[in-house]
Nucleic acid binder design. Sequence first.
DNA 1: GATTTCATGTGTACGCTGTCCACAATGCCA
DNA 2: TGGCATTGTGGACAGCGTACACATGAAATC
Lengths: 208, 208
Amino acid sequence: MSIAQRTTYRHGDLRQALLDAGIDMAREGGPDAVVLREATRRTGVSPNAAYRHFADREALVAAVSDAASSASAAAIEAEWDTVPAGTPAETAHAHLRAVGVGYLRFARDEPGLFRAAYTVPSDLEEAFSPRKAGPGGRTPFQLLSIALDEMVAAGLLPAERRPGAELCAWSAVHGLSMLVIEGPLRDLDDATLLNAGRQVIDMVDRGL
Amino acid sequence: MSIAQRTTYRHGDLRQALLDAGIDMAREGGPDAVVLREATRRTGVSPNAAYRHFADREALVAAVSDAASSASAAAIEAEWDTVPAGTPAETAHAHLRAVGVGYLRFARDEPGLFRAAYTVPSDLEEAFSPRKAGPGGRTPFQLLSIALDEMVAAGLLPAERRPGAELCAWSAVHGLSMLVIEGPLRDLDDATLLNAGRQVIDMVDRGL
DNA sequence: GATTTCATGTGTACGCTGTCCACAATGCCA
DNA sequence: TGGCATTGTGGACAGCGTACACATGAAATC
């Protein structure tokens, strides 16, 4: 499919094709596995063609990272959408947990994309870039913020502790994810992992 | 110093010299910046000489990672040792915080080495390897475990929540560290950063 | 002390990478 | 129809990790 050789000189949508190839490589081996020449090879195009669409390898990786963030947002949204209607307090709690669970699940299911999404340099403003948003139009960071706002509104989180709270929550779940996928905690069985996830989310819930 | 050209055919301690060069490179650019040929260049030796001491580049990076873990442990121990004598409860709390602060401080001061220490594949058993220990002979993971044991002994942490607690604590601090050094939170000013660190540690302390 | 042995360093070479340059093909617009 | 900007090609270069054959010299053996 990707290797389909074209008969026309022009490709059609080379940029997207290269990006797709990059995403595939990232899926298999994380951002470091994204190699520019291989992407052109998979799209049946000469190595230099890539430079018409990406300034350099770094730019390609950044685009892959955006796509990966987007996929992560989609995973979180999927979890979010399973939350049943309930009291504001119940909903707030459930949403916060959904963000954590979705995040962890994505890290588990797509470790390569996860690393592409969260270990490629990008600053705080980028975290709100629509390029990183899911189908619902919100980035992972925004989803977390919303859940925390709900917590405050429901009286579950003192307003004075609200500033910086997303940082706390994110740190905990992100840390677990990293340790699980490329840290000293790889090769943990699913049961232990899910348990650890629940435990961390409990800690956040209780300690925030 | 590293570039000192030797007159003898034999080097003396090439392995250590290559390792030192590798550590320097990791300090400047993280584990990805460790390049084998450059290490040999800095030690004034031919590229292939490295293969007498390291199976391949990966082995060199792993050795650098061990050294970086060791440095991290030293930073934590330094923080640990500033804890004044007090009641068991005070000491336990202070030790737990010391681990967190030391970890964060190392991430801040030596981001390259931090990434070398904590993002290079190594499994759970490795976390206790003496190669990763600090001058006091304990690895970062072990120091955290000790602090948590003290918490239980002092009645600050219910025994039934002790299993997996180091995972929670580590995740939170590690997550913040990663987000700070290469994630969306880079370029945070020192005040905000230290504040965030305190906040996360508070959360752990409260929520564990 | 002479000889053998074996760990350690060298030289050459290969395929891979990212990237630069000049050139070619194409679609679009005047 | 002719010119032009866009997009893809071809060739080249330096740098990387690493394999293979060879050189060196310190230590072990006789």
